[in-house]
């Protein structure tokens, strides 16, 4: 730290070391096409996913692009309001703005008919009894409180069905995960099916194998 030479007038006063510079910026956020269409479904208590082509993955909530194809997702597909917990965590930290009683469970839930898990809350079961593979269903707010937000689903709760023992943790269907080195050999791009060219992956993926 270099030595600072001050003018005489500032030598005997308490120096300023920090300063508050509050700043507020006001934006008008617009949801865009995919999100608006999805949320209008929510106001009718429907969970509507989107896909790029009839063969491609169903995304919920849709965000405007199929990230594997790099294409818009114009096709709407209603998915089920029940699904399977693919993973979860138990939160003991009072999170800013959450207003949740701790502990609570935040889970990745793969809805039947969807190809990507959504993150949502699990309630109506003690946190230490939540399991990977557990079947859960959506619990909506009262009709009067339904708004265009995923929070109109208050949480998910167990359906009481038997657990899905074959639940797919992302990437696990290949046993060891996509990014693992087996026998010291690195994976290549061909581990997965390229959704545009059909090259790579296994026959189960619809790829060339």
């Amino acid at each position: 730290m270099p030595e600072i030479q001050l003018p005489a007038s500032l030598r005997d006063v308490e120096p300023v070391r920090s300063v508050r510079t509050p700043a507020q910026l006001d934006y008008t956020f617009t949801a865009g096409d995919a999100t608006s269409r999805f949320l209008r479904g929510i106001t009718q208590k429907k969970i509507i996913g989107q896909q790029a082509t009839p063969q491609s993955k169903v995304y919920v909530p849709p965000r405007g692009a199929d990230p594997e194809l790099g294409a818009a997702t114009p096709i709407e597909v209603e998915v089920a309001q029940v699904g399977t917990v693919t993973s979860f965590c138990v939160v003991n930290l009072q999170f800013y703005g959450s207003g949740m009683e701790i502990p609570y469970t935040s889970a990745l839930i793969l809805l039947d008919g969807a190809d990507l898990s959504i993150m949502h809350l699990i309630q109506e079961i003690p946190a230490d009894q939540v399991r990977i593979g557990m079947r859960v269903e959506a619990v909506w707010r009262d009709d009067a409180d339904i708004e265009p937000t995923l929070e109109s689903i208050k949480w998910f709760r167990p359906t009481g069905e038997p657990d899905d023992v074959n639940v797919r943790i992302p990437g696990e269907k290949r046993g060891t995960g996509l990014g693992s080195w087996v026998g010291g050999v690195a994976p290549t791009e061909l581990v997965v099916r390229n959704p545009r060219t059909g090259v790579g992956g296994t026959e189960a993926d619809g790829g060339e194998g």
Partner: peptide, 24 residues
């Protein structure tokens, strides 16, 4: 790789392994 794609492995991401293989 994408944040939220259906095929992606969030535990052992393919992108991480490809990056390592390339640099090695």
């Amino acid at each position: 790789e994408p944040t939220l794609s259906a095929e992606r492995d969030t535990v052992l991401p393919l992108g991480g392994a490809l990056c390592a293989a390339d640099v090695y």
